[in-house]
């Protein structure tokens, strides 16, 4: 069920990212919707599905970008794996966990994206990339992290109602 919902959702998020979010920028940063979805679904309890979301979401993103298909998937699968380490351990007890995971995930996502850009033989201005793109994007992602996790948790609870002992 998570895949039936997830694949069209990821496609829509990739479309929003390309068609709409270019117009809503803070400096040159913008929210990374698919990254947030992967982290959010992982923290909501579906870490293994989140890894698959990472693969599929990465493919959609790469289709709408100049980077080779598969490169963003690798990053998102690794982020899904990172999230799975924390699943069911600290998150329930610590509301700061989504923020910490989003912070680490955003930084990893953008640094690996820059790595791909470097591998493609393009020049990278690290200072500019950090100050104008990575930090503003991370800030926006942090703002959206808690609502995203809550929303995805609510959806997951509807799809897979938690078992209650009577």
């Amino acid at each position: 069920m998570a895949y039936v919902l997830g694949i069209p959702l990821l496609m829509l998020l990739a479309i929003f990212q390309s068609a709409l979010l270019g117009n809503f920028q803070f400096l040159e940063g913008r929210p990374d919707l698919i990254l947030l979805a992967v982290i959010g679904w992982g923290l909501a309890g579906g870490s293994e599905e989140a890894m698959v979301w990472g693969l599929v979401g990465g493919i959609f993103l790469d289709m709408l970008s100049g980077v080779p298909i598969g490169s963003t998937s690798i990053t998102l699968i690794l982020i899904g794996t990172l999230v799975s380490i924390y699943e069911d351990r600290i998150w329930e007890a610590n509301f700061l966990m989504p923020l910490g995971t989003t912070l680490a995930g955003s930084l990893l996502f953008h640094i690996m994206s820059l790595g791909v850009i470097l591998l493609l033989g393009r020049e990278v201005d690290w200072a500019y990339a950090f100050s104008r793109v990575i930090l503003p994007s991370t800030f926006i992602n942090l703002l959206l992290a808690l609502p995203t996790v809550q929303a995805l948790k609510a959806i997951r609870n509807r799809l897979y109602p938690p078992e209650v002992e009577i």
């Binding site: 990739a14 479309i15 990212q17 390309s18 068609a19 270019g22 040159e28 940063g29 913008r30 993103l61 709408l64 970008s65 100049g66 980077v67 994206s113 820059l114 850009i117 393009r122 990278v124 990339a129 793109v133 994007s137």
Partner: peptide, 14 residues
């Protein structure tokens, strides 16, 4: 123009 490159490090449009 139907979109922009989703990578903020590549300046291209779709």
């Amino acid at each position: 123009v139907i979109g922009r490159d989703v990578s903020p490090f590549i300046r291209s449009i779709l």
